[in-house]
């Protein structure tokens, strides 16, 4: 971290902001606009980077934006994309219902949208919706959790933001597996809103109420890391932790034996695939595939953690 550099960057940032607002048309006018949730979650940063690099490799110019899970901001960004004359939009949307109108607006303006990571509650509006199979991923994580627990013992579940569809899908995937084992008892279930800080404080309180726990299963990796920090502060290295996403932090914790497993959503590859489909659609008028495409998740444990880097598994 360089203070001088940061100061300069802050000043430049203001100028860059102005520069970005001007449509960056490439010579053939083909622009791909990439819109994801905030990049402060490395998962979305990997998604944006995957889409950007593939688009530039295929000769498109790009604009990368973040809607910060605000449907209103997303709506404005789509307006800007329409105004900029985008050829296609790659979107990780800000809400299954709240995003339908915005995607429809792009379609009406003749701009095809390619959705990644999250679905919208409408078909025929976006050209493609590539979604990780969160349910399948959750059952993988739950199976690894059950095995590490030895099919018995008290455990805690930390769930994601309760208004987020994926939080519910993952939780039900976990329970469809774990609830088959009557000796596995959930003693506490709390939402930590995907947040590391919240997972830390809540885990500390839960540990007080229930010192006799054997495992923690978290709806994403940042919450798993928060829970791990609380367990370590309490000297509880015996507790089994399982996460979801496949972040580099959890990968390192798996390698050092602190976390049992996580589930990788191939965010980087998924975003690249969306751009490939967009390219095909723009050239041939069709992606040649159904609108809804499901990508399977992969279990990451001690056996393959070394191959994981920024949400992509080396082959």
């Amino acid at each position: 971290m360089k203070f001088a550099k940061t100061l300069a960057a802050l000043a430049l940032g203001a100028m860059a902001g102005i520069a970005l607002a001007v449509p960056a048309m490439s010579q053939d006018g083909k622009l791909i606009v990439i819109i994801t949730p905030s990049h402060d979650n490395p998962f979305f940063a990997a998604e944006a980077e995957g889409a950007r690099s593939k688009a530039e490799e295929l000769g498109y110019s790009t604009q990368v934006y973040s809607h910060d899970d605000d449907a209103n901001k997303q709506n404005q960004l789509i307006d800007s994309a329409i105004a900029a004359g985008a050829a296609a939009i790659i979107l990780d949307n800000a809400g299954a219902d709240a995003s339908v109108a915005a995607v429809q607006k792009a379609k009406d303006a003749g701009i095809p949208s390619f959705l990644i990571d999250r679905e919208i509650n409408a078909t025929g509006v976006a050209v493609a919706q590539i979604v990780s199979n969160n349910y399948q991923g959750a059952t993988l994580g739950a199976e690894a959790f059950v095995e590490a627990m030895g099919e018995a013992g008290n455990y805690v579940e930390l769930t994601g933001r309760e208004s987020d569809t994926n939080a519910g899908i993952r939780s039900s995937g976990y329970h469809d597996v774990i609830d088959q084992y009557p000796d596995l008892v959930m003693v506490a279930q709390q939402s930590a809103n995907w947040s590391q800080t919240e997972a830390f404080t809540k885990m500390e309180s839960i540990l007080q109420a229930n010192p006799d726990i054997k495992g923690v299963i978290a709806g994403n990796d940042t919450m798993a890391m928060g829970a791990l920090a609380a367990l370590e502060a309490a000297g509880r290295s015996d507790v089994i932790v399982v996460g979801f996403d496949g972040s580099n932090d959890v990968r390192d914790a798996i390698i050092s034996g602190k976390v049992t497993a996580t589930v990788l959503q191939p965010a980087y590859r998924q975003a690249q695939w969306a751009v490939e489909l967009a390219d095909k659609y723009l050239k041939e008028g069709s992606t040649g595939m159904d609108e809804k495409i499901s990508m399977d998740c992969v279990l990451i444990d001690a056996s393959n953690a070394e191959q994981l880097e920024t949400f992509a598994l080396a082959e």
Partner: peptide
């Protein structure tokens, strides 16, 4: 500024 310092990433 906090986001700019790391490009949004976590220092872990």
């Amino acid at each position: 500024a906090a986001l700019l310092l790391s490009g949004g990433a976590t220092f872990s």
